[in-house]
Amino acid sequence: MNRVTLDLWVGIFVASGIIALLFLGLKVGNLAAANNSETYLLLARFDNIGGLKVRGAVKAAGVVVGRVADIHLDSESYLAVVTMKINKRYQFPRDTFATINTSGLLGEQYVGLDVGGDPTMLKEGEMVTKTQSAVVLEKLIGQFLFGKAAEAGAAAKK
């Protein structure tokens, strides 16, 4: 085999390998979404974050507007502090409400932003003050059982 054909084949091989990598990066991975947009950080304090994880979605009206960048425990207030990376395209009013929701019954948890009506927008590094924690199933069941027991007790007294 002469050198030109050989070089041609190696060129094809390397090019197709790079195309495969690009395919993985752009179509399979989130490279396109992560790099084409600038982001800003928002913070939110929650009593309980449930099963929220770093890289979880942040959604407003069901649309993914950002990702959870960091989660840590504030050692003074013992509240969970969630840092969210939000796409610069989306601005949220100061009285936005942050909740932790679950997608589907067994799905992963995400931060939902319910937009308020304040004319001033949240800026880089600011805190979302109104939050609602994740629903913990055990607590819910516990409340239900206590409620039932109290009802039964009241019924028995009569």
């Binding site: 390397v14 197709s16 495969a20």
Partner: peptide, 9 residues
């Protein structure tokens, strides 16, 4: 790495 990327794709 090129072959592995092709395999995955």
């Amino acid at each position: 790495p090129l072959l592995a990327a092709l395999f995955s794709a």
